[in-house]
Design a protein around this nucleic acid. Structure first.
Length: 1067
RNA sequence: GGGUGCUUAGCUCAGCUGGUUAGAGCACUUCGUUUACACCGAAGGGGUCGAGGGUUCGAAUCCUUCAGCACCCACCA
């Protein structure tokens, strides 16, 4: 047996072990091929905003624990990883970064360049996160990794959007939304946070009313005053119109009655600004009031605000209040009114409610859907989402969150899903300039590489050639080289076909490319260069100058025989349209000329003619990649443009449990596939309670609708990881914030995992600090050393021996085997009940107390323990493996097994190992040893000194004298029948222990000790006596309880008597 | 305003459907180079289980009121 190092050093093992698992594809259920039931978890995809924090680490530890446990139990186990593009969050991070690095805004860069920057950032984030996930030991199936923005997931998004549109669930409307003037986008109701502030409450003189408001500037948008219908003060005024004096002259309002008004607040009358308050908007809707918008999307006063135009609402407030004061329109101002203002959850900017044309999901609309059990009789999204949890089709752990879920779901308003940001799924809606109805398309975009021909002889000379007859214009040497290089690059991309202009320079380019690509080519004259008319053969500069001088003239007409811009555009667009129709979802290489490629880009970016004309195009031999969608429009493609908004990030993550299970070559028709059948609904959704609404609720809404299935059967919600003081960890408090990677490097990732698993219960926050992780690091090392000792003393021949229970086992064997099997039973039960902490506690207690402190110590004196030891060690490692995969696997490697621990079978409870008598007997032995140790300590006997004691005991205990001598460090045990004279005494039920006084101690101390023990026991007996004397107790308590109390009473009584005798003798 | 959770040893927490002389880890005290481990071992000190009331033979555990802390939700302008 090779010598193991004294202390476990995680760094020597962790990476190697993980790589080995991965190389053997153990994370992939197809390799493992377990025949059991499916057990699947889809990993909550981390946002690609940077790196993982402790919350993620906890998530990874808990899920890996479940997955490894189930995998070892033979379940067909899948843990599927992925990433979330996290639209607003990621865009904000990148925006901030660009602004800090380059001082530029996203608008300075433009959509395309900005998105490129985002993609760079995203791929960097993905790398970091992947690396961190691996370090934690997560056994996720990397071969199934997905991303919310990848092709299949994007197609799923478009497909669901169209389905919902067709069912009338996705609607467009001009409604009030939460608007963040900084992010320049709408926000869903739950993306708003509330901030407690002191603000001013203004009491305005308002025509015949006096009313209170915190936002006097919105007076400019008022169209009504609302009062409670029951309020007698205003009854006579309801329905009447009044002219109200204001800073911009008089305006008319209507008085309406509405239940939403609290007559107790202020004067009981409310000014109504429908365009800039959620409540007022609803009042306006109910009472059919006019809506007047006065604040724009930058949060500034609009043109209809007279001299206040252009001010922010805050500036306008000050200014208007000043003017109103001057006009005597302000009655009074309360200075410290407690108010909650709504702010953006991402950037904390104050939200400006305003009216906007947006896309919504109607959660209340009842629909009927064939083939979907939830909707077959008509139901709304909301109703179904409530029903599946009520019916326990989805089980939430801990249960109390069900209540929270129901409350939220019942109060859910229509969900605004459009966002005015660039990063995300662009809404799959196109508008035709001539049509009122939008066109929804779930078609798969065609990927097009726009390849410009190599340098031609005319390029070299700087002259023009657009005459089809002038076919002699081939490529220069440089041009041929350019294309050869490009062919090398393109040969790895899987194109379906080449479309090309039929000019000689493009034909020659295609020829060179196709030596590598070997594809079908279609030469299409619609891809030709613009006809240059009388500029044929003339200098390029002249032509450019001519066009730039008067773009408008050239756009429609064809002076000097030059083909007009629109004419060319029409033929190019029609060619592209044909390509899109025939090759939807495919990849096409288009070889053409600069100005043609420029138009294709214009189509891709939905630009105006002017903008197209100003666009650059690839250099000779270079290319650009674009994606275009085939949208059926009566007017053809050139008339159509796509909605520039993107979808709320939760739309795509709402599909996550099933969109991730779609096959890589999904045809976009049905949401089905092999993995889907095998793993959906997923078994457990494990995530933080903080995204119960954001995410969990959305998945339930979307999945029941799309699949007619629940997304998951169980929801396990973990808490937040907090610092030592119970505060949220943040980078601004580095003294208490812990980075999981750094902690792992310092203490090992097993220790980090344990510190997050043990002491962490569902739904509750967990505190983490260095000392805690350190404690678990110590434990990991303890386990290492237990194994090390067993391996060092083991007879190598017995290493692979199979354990079988036989009659030769000793008391200690019977005890440890019984204890161990109880442990298997309890741990299995607890893990099945999601009580990970409890299971870990039990394992730890067994490992440290029973195994290390007792059994191993006994193994040092008793012989023939090898077989039991190796049996227990192996199975204990299996049970520990899901908690701390690295160290257990590292030890396992030294046990000479062929197969890795990770793919071994989880131990099973074996009833015949349970030995209650043995356990009881051994426990008495433990107490006896404890008493002797205690006496030694009390009398300050040198631990090294071996002493003699006398014991009065039965045969059974006599057989264990060897163990007692060793563990209590005795020189000799003398068996006595009668109590010897002058000795210190301890009593353990029927066993009496005597420590001869002669050599050792002072009698006074022993008297004191005895007195105090008698005292204690007397108190105990008194309590029991009272209990047993209570008639009601004797009558009502179960027999078993009474008997046990009686037994305790007798035993204690006897003990007191003996101690009393001893005391008398000494005194 | 509504709701949820928490309050047990100095600190962090277990104690499930009521019956142990109330537990663990860390910290603390004393002792210890026993050939697995000082990232260790042995022994020990320390809690009227937030407060009051109730149910019960019996309450840390169930009910109720209150207090403190934390979090979530809500359209008091």
């Amino acid at each position: 047996m090779k010598e193991l190092p004294k202390a476990y050093c995680p760094k020597d093992f962790e990476e190697k072990i993980y790589n080995n698992w991965e190389e053997k594809k153990f994370f992939n259920p197809d390799t493992i091929n377990n025949k059991g039931k499916a057990f699947s978890i889809v990993l909550p995809p981390p946002n690609v905003t940077g790196s993982l924090h402790l919350g993620h680490a906890a998530m990874l530890a808990i899920e890996d624990l479940m997955i490894r446990y189930k995998r070892m139990q033979g379940f067909d186990t899948l843990w599927l990883p992925g990433f979330d593009h996290a639209a607003i969050a990621t865009q904000n991070v990148v925006e901030k970064k660009i602004f800090n690095d380059e001082g530029k805004t996203r608008h300075d860069l433009g959509r395309e360049a900005f998105l490129n920057k985002v993609e760079d950032f995203v791929s960097q984030s993905k790398k970091t996160i992947t690396n961190q996930t691996r370090k934690m030991g997560s056994s996720v199936d990397w071969s199934r990794e997905t991303y919310t923005l990848d092709d299949v997931r994007s197609m799923a998004v478009r497909k669901v959007f169209k389905m919902m549109y067709d069912d009338g669930l996705v609607i467009r409307g001009n409604r009030i939304v939460n608007w963040c003037p900084r992010c320049h986008t709408t926000l869903a109701d739950d993306e708003i946070e509330y901030k407690e502030t002191k603000s001013k409450l203004y009491w305005l003189k308002y025509g015949p009313f006096v009313l209170a408001t915190t936002r006097p500037e919105t007076k400019l948008g008022d169209t009504a005053v609302a009062v409670n219908p029951k309020d007698k003060r205003y009854k006579s005024m309801i329905g009447k119109k009044y002219m109200i004096p204001g800073v911009l002259g008089e305006f008319e309002i209507t008085v309406v009655a509405d239940e939403a008004v609290d007559p107790e607040f202020g004067t009981g009358a409310v000014k109504v600004t429908p365009a800039h308050s959620l409540v007022d908007y609803e009042i306006a809707e109910r009472n059919e009031l006019p809506i007047k918008q006065i604040i724009d999307e930058d949060g500034r006063m609009m043109a209809n605000c007279g001299k206040y135009v252009g001010m922010t609402s805050l500036e306008a407030r000050e200014s208007i209040v000043k003017d109103m004061k001057a006009m005597g329109l302000i009655e009074k101002i309360d200075d410290d009114y407690d108010n909650k203002i709504s702010v953006c959850y991402r950037c904390k900017t104050v939200i400006e409610p305003l009216i906007s044309d947006q896309w919504f999901i109607d959660v209340n609309k009842k629909i009927t859907k064939k083939g979907n059990k939830y909707f077959s009789n008509g139901a709304s999204l909301k109703q179904v989402a409530i029903k599946v949890v009520k019916d326990k089709e989805i089980n939430i752990i801990p249960e109390r969150f069900e209540k929270v879920y129901f409350h939220w779901m019942e109060n859910l308003h229509n969900w605004c899903i459009s966002r005015q940001i660039w990063f995300g799924h662009q809404i799959p809606v196109w508008y035709d300039k001539d049509l009122k109805q939008p066109i929804i398309s779930d078609a798969k975009p065609t990927e097009i590489v726009l390849q410009r021909h190599g340098e031609a002889k005319t390029n070299e000379k700087g002259v023009l050639s657009s005459d089809i007859d002038n076919l002699e214009n081939g490529l220069t040497g440089t041009g041929k080289k350019q294309i050869k290089i490009m062919a090398e690059k393109l040969k790895n991309e899987k194109f379906d076909i080449i479309y090309a202009s039929d000019f000689s320079r493009t034909k020659e380019t295609v020829g060179i490319l196709n030596k590598e690509l070997k594809l079908k080519v279609i030469f299409d004259e619609r891809l030709r260069e613009v006809g240059v008319g009388e500029f044929e053969g003339k200098s390029v500069g002249d032509f450019v100058h001519f066009r730039e001088a008067d773009f408008e003239a050239w756009r429609n007409d064809s002076p000097k025989g030059i083909e007009s811009f629109l004419h060319q555009k029409k033929r190019v667009f029609s060619c592209l349209t044909d390509i899109l129709k025939k090759y939807s979802g495919k990849k096409v290489l288009v070889v053409s000329h600069g100005d043609v490629l420029r138009m294709a880009q214009g189509m891709h970016k939905n630009l105006t003619d002017e903008e197209i004309f100003k666009l650059g195009y690839p250099e000779t031999g270079e290319n650009i990649k674009i994606k275009l969608t085939n949208v059926e429009s009566p007017n053809g493609l050139e008339n159509i443009y796509q909605d520039s908004d993107t979808l709320d990030t939760w739309f795509s993550s709402g599909l996550w449990t099933f969109s991730t299970l779609l096959p890589e070559d999904w045809n976009g028709k049905k949401f089905e596939g092999k993995d889907m059948k095998r793993f959906h609904p997923t078994t457990v959704m494990e995530t933080g309670y903080d995204i119960l609404f954001f995410w969990v609720a959305r998945m339930i809404l979307m999945t029941t609708y799309v699949k007619g299935e629940v997304p998951f059967e169980n929801v396990y919600l973990h808490g937040l990881v907090r610092d030592k003081n119970g505060d949220k960890m943040s980078k601004s408090k580095p003294e208490t914030a812990i980075d999981p990677l750094q902690a792992g490097d310092k203490y090992g990732f097993d220790a980090v995992r344990l510190s997050l698993l043990i002491g962490n219960t569902a739904g509750n926050d967990i505190r983490l600090y260095d000392e805690k992780i350190e404690g678990y690091r110590n434990f990991v090392n303890k386990l290492w050393n237990i194994s090390r000792y067993i391996l060092m003393t083991l007879n190598p021949e017995k290493r692979d021996s199979k354990f079988e229970l036989n009659k030769n086992v000793s008391l200690s064997d019977r005890w440890i085997l019984s204890k161990f099997n109880t442990l298997i039973q309890d741990v299995t039960k607890m893990l099945d009940e999601y009580n990970f902490s409890g299971a870990g506690d039990l394992l730890k207690e067994f490992t440290w107390n029973d195994l290390a402190d007792w059994y191993l110590e006994i193994a040092k004196v008793e012989n023939d323990k090898d077989v039991v030891l190796i049996h227990i060690l192996k199975n204990l490692l299996k049970m520990w493996h899901p908690f701390m995969p690295f160290v257990t696997e590292a030890i396992w490697q030294n046990l000479g097994s062929e197969q890795e621990l990770m793919v071994s079978k989880f131990p099973q409870f074996d009833k015949k190992m349970i030995d209650k008598e043995g356990v009881k007997e051994f426990e008495q032995l433990q107490v006896v040893i404890g008493k002797i140790r205690n006496m030694r300590s009390e009398y300050k006997i040198d631990p090294a000194k071996k002493i003699k004691i006398q014991i009065k005991a039965g045969e059974r205990l006599q057989s264990q004298f060897g163990i007692i001598m060793s563990l209590a460090r005795l020189e000799k045990i003398e068996l006595v029948i009668e109590k010897p004279e002058k000795s210190a005494t301890a009593i353990v039920s029927d066993v009496e222990i005597y420590l001869p006084l002669a050599e050792l101690l002072d009698i006074d101390k022993e008297i004191e000790r005895l007195k105090s023990e008698i005292d204690n026991s007397k108190k105990y007996v008194l309590g029991l006596e009272k209990k047993l004397g209570n008639e009601e107790f004797m009558k009502n308590a179960p027999e078993l309880v009474v008997a046990e109390e009686q037994r305790k009473f007798n035993e204690a009584k006897e003990k007191i008597e003996k101690l009393q005798n001893q005391l008398e003798e000494l005194e």
